[in-house]
């Protein structure tokens, strides 16, 4: 309850600050729209926004899932072979600093103008931070716990699933958070740069259209929705997952 009050207070003060800057600065509605017009735009275009948000979420969900599976397999390969960690560390050093959006031109060349290209950018953007977190997590598992698992006769996939995964869960959760944020950024950025993929579009495409038409309240409405989805996912999924796992085991500091 106390948390809820403080969070509401924070949002309320941000809203007051926004309005104060707008009124005192005397900015044009085109540059700095009022909260009222943003909310009105949000409401008026709710059907369109919902469809775009759903499209984005589907794409991000698919991309993130693929990236998680890939990262998990690569991290496990790193743990089970001798030469792989060096190779992957080098590849990660090359790829990780590269913004996902920078490979969009290449993706378009390879996959054409379609959702495949955006999907590729999402996977690329999420894969490296995920892999980094997973591999760090696996390496920080207490040796004793791994050896207890091996002592019980576990090895390979069984050891990975029943010991390594839960033992490195704080890192895995951190990776999922970063991966989710990167996937969002990538999907919005890709659509902002080159527009809709095929007939449909996500929230990035919505922002692109609104900016193009100089409907500034609409741009902010789209951004507000992206923030709102981020908050809902954080509190509904990640925080719940954290409370049910690492917090319960006291694997992280409160």
């Amino acid at each position: 309850m106390k948390k809820l009050v403080s969070k509401t207070a924070l949002i309320f003060s941000l809203a007051v600050l926004w309005e104060a800057v707008r009124v005192l600065g005397g900015y044009s509605e085109l540059l700095f729209p009022s909260l009222r017009s943003i909310v009105l735009s949000l409401w008026a275009e709710r059907a369109q926004l919902f469809a775009n948000a759903l499209f984005s979420l589907k794409l991000i969900g698919l991309g993130l899932f693929t990236a998680v599976v890939l990262a998990m397999m690569l991290a496990l390969l790193c743990m089970s072979t001798k030469i792989f960690p060096g190779v992957i560390t080098d590849i990660m050093a090359i790829m990780h600093p590269l913004p996902g959006i920078a490979i969009l031109p290449v993706a378009i060349l390879w996959f054409g103008i379609g959702i495949e290209s955006i999907l590729f950018v999402i996977i690329f953007s999420a894969l490296w931070p995920l892999l980094n977190h997973f591999y760090t997590g696996f390496r920080s598992i207490p040796k004793n716990q791994l050896e207890v698992g091996r002592n019980l006769g576990l090895s390979g996939v069984k050891l990975a699933l029943s010991v390594m995964l839960p033992a490195s869960f704080p890192h895995i959760l951190g990776g999922l958070r970063t991966g989710w944020a990167r996937a969002w950024q990538a999907s919005v950025a890709a659509e902002l740069v080159f527009g809709a993929a095929g007939g449909q579009g996500g929230l990035g495409w919505y922002l692109y259209k609104k900016r193009f038409l100089m409907e500034t309240p609409g741009v902010f409405a789209g951004m507000l929705l992206i923030i709102a989805i981020g908050l809902v996912v954080e509190y509904l999924i990640f925080t719940t997952l954290e409370n049910l796992t690492v917090r319960k085991w006291k694997a992280v500091i409160d």
Binding site: P142, N144, Q145, P166, A167, T245, W249, K250, A251
Partner: peptide, 9 residues
């Protein structure tokens, strides 16, 4: 050796 042999989860 060591006290971290139980699975914390």
């Amino acid at each position: 050796q060591g006290l971290d042999q139980l699975f914390p989860w």
